[in-house]
Design a protein around this nucleic acid. Structure first.
Lengths: 222, 222
DNA sequence: TGATGTTTCAAACAATCGTTTCCATCGAGG
DNA sequence: CCTCGATGGAAACGATTGTTTGAAACATCA
């Protein structure tokens, strides 16, 4: 089982370095030397650096999507035919997001990777994630649609991305923010702590009143 | 005035390429060839690539901070001694963010750069921005503090970063999201449109009920 | 054991990176 | 006029990048 060991060591090292520095800023030599494997091992086992990046994501997203599908199955069965309340949907997603990386490594790494995938947005990664894991997200949004029938479709679309931005942004930049918070307010913030704080904010954001109709001119009322 | 022309052409080209591909993924040769200037011009006028990156940010952030300070001066004068309502603070910030890049280029580039600065977070950039422009942000948060006296300090700190994440995340990934929205809901979304949608969400997020008290439980590994 | 297929390893590959050097060019001041 | 500091331009620098190579080491099974 020396091969699996090498593959695992590469993935373990790569995901941490990617999360810390980004993809382009992390060379294969840095990864392989820190993982104590040969330089050629990456190209041998994964084929290319791009494939390694995708493999890092798969190791998180594959168990997540599988488990999340199961959780949604349970939810739909429990509310047979009916509507699943919004808070229950959000709660289930948060729980799943928390559980999956906990089995392997830190949630921080997972969130940082998601943030990188969104911002660096080097075509191939974005496309890969969308095509590979878009279905579970679409299933989730459909359930959210039924839970918030009063919201226009486009409004719900944007609000879901608003809160997605909040979560990814906060959790991926957690370290830097935590340092500031700890220094200024003297309280040490855990991930679970942050999620507890996020919950009412996310719910309030999704339930916010609809924006006023777009004004024809640019007359601004305060 | 040939030198200013070269410097400006480099900055104009660099900010667009940086926003599109990221910093590490954009080579000086790509910038200089597209800007039709000599390769050595970057190192001659700016000193290094890192300095060029900082210069790109300065060109946005310098006018922004200056104008925003002025806006805050006006607000404080208008509510002499009193408290500035939260919505007025947010409105003023949004208006300033909208105005500054409009004079030069697109808001999209500006937001994409902010998103990159936050996620890529290659030490030097984060530190540069924090040290150079942290004061205006601190002034703003202090005004927000007076506008939301019922919020515990730490809670307000986190919520401000929550909504900051929402805005940067949404506006920096606007292109990709806009494509999806346009395809699925057939409506073309402008930046002003998005800000109109963001407003009630941000206000609701900041005014959300406080989270329930933390349950005494096991510690969490970061 | 000997043969076979897989994995590891050191070395080199070509390409690209940021940076530097050296010289030509230009314009203003003595 | 000539000089001199500033700028533009071509070429090369050394370093680093992802990838490939060919042989050694290993495991597996007849």
């Amino acid at each position: 089982m020396a091969q699996t060991d090498t593959v695992t060591r590469i993935l373990d090292t790569a995901e941490v370095l990617f999360a810390e520095r980004g993809f382009a800023e992390t060379s294969l030599r840095t990864i392989t030397s820190k993982a104590r494997v040969n330089l050629a091992a990456v190209n041998y086992h994964f084929g290319s650096k791009k494939a390694l990046i995708q493999a890092v994501f798969s190791r998180y997203l594959d168990p997540f999507t599988e488990r999340f599908h199961g959780v949604l199955d349970d939810l739909e069965a429990r509310h047979a035919g009916g509507v699943i309340p919004l808070e229950e949907l959000l709660e289930s997603m948060a729980r799943t997001v928390l559980e999956v990386p906990a089995e392997r490594h830190s949630l921080k790494v997972f969130m940082k990777l998601l943030g990188l995938a969104y911002s660096q947005a080097q075509g191939h990664l974005r496309r890969y994630i969308q095509e590979e894991y878009g279905s579970v997200f679409m299933r989730f949004t459909e359930l959210v649609r039924r839970a918030t029938p009063e919201l226009p479709d486009s409004e719900r679309f944007w609000r879901l991305h608003f809160v997605l931005g909040t979560v990814i942004f906060t959790l991926s930049g957690l370290d830097a923010l935590r340092d500031i918070a700890e220094k200024d307010y003297g309280e040490h913030v855990t991930v679970r702590d942050l999620i507890r704080r996020l919950r009412p904010v996310v719910v309030a954001a999704l339930n916010a009143p609809l924006p006023e109709a777009p004004v024809a001119s640019h007359a601004e009322a305060s």
